[in-house]
């Protein structure tokens, strides 16, 4: 069974890093993964999207997926076009600080990622909060793998952020652990 996860947001929110960390964590956990990022020349504010497919065999799906198991929306700008790809029963993770969670009756997991990151004094880490919430809710990979993959993925000039990111991942996970557990991978 292949699980397709599409991350959407704008440049600067950490979309590419979230996806890269998730894919690496899946591979580190012994699974197969595919990662494909699409973004424009604008590093801040332009559309940013990344697709991760996780499976137990070489991935069959192409990197521009026709349908997805989950969407992680950090920003609403590119979300409407993506929603059509969400399978019935698929989960939408919405950064409710910025994304309207009352989305036509779909199953939405709201996470106030930007607000929680801001409260931690690190608004740029909202993606880590969301990623922590995502893996806690779906159990698609263990959180410890994600923390390790995040540490390994940071370039040298960002390694000072590793501990703060780990705390934000834990914060996101904590947020959903109290909520009900839905599907697992």
């Amino acid at each position: 069974m292949e699980r397709e996860i599409v991350f959407t947001g704008i440049g600067g929110q950490g979309i590419q890093l979230m996806a890269k960390v998730l894919a690496q964590a899946a591979v580190d956990a012994g699974r197969h993964a595919m990662l494909f990022g699409l973004y424009g020349g604008a590093m801040r504010g332009g559309p940013s999207e990344s697709t991760v497919v996780i499976g137990d065999a070489p991935i069959e799906a192409p990197p521009i997926v026709p349908a997805c198991w989950s969407i992680v929306a950090m920003h609403p700008s590119a979300l409407p076009a993506l929603l059509a790809k969400l399978r019935p029963g698929g989960l939408l993770f919405a950064n409710e600080t910025l994304v309207d969670v009352a989305l036509d009756g779909r199953a939405v997991v709201p996470v106030p990622a930007t607000r929680l990151a801001e409260e931690s004094g690190n608004v740029m880490g909202a993606g880590m909060v969301m990623l922590g919430a995502f893996v806690a809710h779906t159990a698609v990979v263990p959180l410890e793998r994600v923390v390790a993959a995040m540490r390994a993925a940071l370039p040298p000039h960002r390694t000072r952020m590793a501990d703060a990111n780990a705390a934000l991942l834990a914060r996101g996970a904590e947020r959903v652990r109290t909520a009900q557990h839905a599907g697992a991978a």
Partner: peptide, 9 residues
């Protein structure tokens, strides 16, 4: 482009 930029195991 896709082969060049898609990461896989």
């Amino acid at each position: 482009f896709l082969l060049s930029h898609t990461s896989e195991l």
